[in-house]
């Protein structure tokens, strides 16, 4: 058994309007940062998981995302597993 560090990025789907991201984009422009074309805000969830191998960990975390960590109606997720 090994301990894995897992990072889950949860992002709003591109079709979902992100009012928080839009507000941050406007604020960046107001601060004078040029060339910033878009800003989207998501979540980063860090997990520590003990299991036999990385493949199993990934499968379990994807299940967690579908059931709780992300809402598949509005959000996409990316799972990164590190030893």
């Amino acid at each position: 058994m090994k301990e894995y560090k897992v990072k889950v990025e949860v992002k709003l789907k591109p079709v979902v309007l992100d009012p928080q991201g839009k507000t941050v984009l406007t604020a960046l422009h107001n601060l004078g940062f040029e060339g910033v074309d878009d800003a989207r805000i998501g979540k980063l969830i860090e997990l520590k998981i003990t299991d036999d191998d990385a493949g199993k960990v990934r499968a379990r975390v994807e299940d967690m995302c579908m059931k709780l960590l992300a809402n598949p109606v509005i959000e996409d997720f990316v799972v990164n597993v590190e030893e």
């Binding site: 709003l12 979902v16 309007l17 009012p19 928080q20 507000t23 809402n71 109606v73 509005i74």
Partner: peptide, 17 residues
């Protein structure tokens, strides 16, 4: 109700924030 799946869709942040 939308999270449990009894109703479709989702409720997200108000557009005005």
């Amino acid at each position: 109700l939308v999270e449990v799946g009894l109703l479709p869709g989702a409720l997200i942040k108000n557009s005005s924030l």
